[in-house]
């Protein structure tokens, strides 16, 4: 896949930059003034990092969602969480100086150390999905908190379900 795509994308880049000599990108509904339309924005009044941070904090953005929940005894990212992970994977690809820590968790039943290892499996599942969606290996660290940091402490199935979770934390946020 990589071999196929690279030359095509590379040529596109050259041609697009050639065309940008016109100074405008006219397509769809976008106007010259609307800098947010299209993939290419040449003028950014704010720094890219702060814009990216704003995107992370925008409550309407999928990036504001940071928790992935897992089924009992399961360590795979469920389909309903794939778009969330995809959004973060793309964001990390677009913002190569950003890094994330993924903290996996487990419910409290059984051995603390074994639960730590189970939480790690959840964190690794999210990490692998992020890499698939474009993040770099050195941008992502998967760790586990095991059963040590539950967000819910009741001994109910609903509560255990909330603790079967992995959280994505961006550097500077923790």
């Amino acid at each position: 896949m990589k071999k196929l795509l690279t030359p095509a994308v590379f040529c596109l880049g050259i041609i697009l930059s050639a065309c940008s000599s016109t100074g405008t990108v006219e397509e769809g509904t976008g106007s010259v003034e609307d800098r947010n339309v299209g993939a290419v924005t040449t003028v950014t009044p704010t720094s890219p990092r702060s814009a990216a941070l704003a995107a992370l904090r925008d409550p309407n953005s999928p990036l504001s969602k940071r928790s992935i929940y897992f089924d009992f005894d399961s360590y795979v990212v469920k389909p309903e969480f794939q778009s969330l992970v995809q959004a973060h994977g793309r964001f990390l690809a677009q913002n190569p100086d950003f890094k994330v820590l993924i903290q996996g968790n487990a419910d409290e039943r059984g051995s603390r150390e074994y639960n730590l290892a189970l939480g790690q499996k959840r964190a690794e599942a999210v990490k692998n999905a992020l890499l698939t969606f474009g993040a770099r290996e050195d941008q992502v660290e998967a760790v586990s908190l095991g059963e040590e940091k539950p967000i819910c402490t009741d001994r109910t199935e609903e509560c255990y379900a909330q603790n079967r979770r992995a959280d994505i934390l961006y550097s500077g946020e923790f």
Binding site: M1, K2, L5, F10, L16, R90, A93, Q94, T132, G134
Partner: peptide, 12 residues
């Protein structure tokens, strides 16, 4: 192999 989505964006 990782699909090079990032490459696409970088080049654009």
């Amino acid at each position: 192999p990782k699909p090079p989505v990032w490459l696409l964006y970088v080049l654009i």
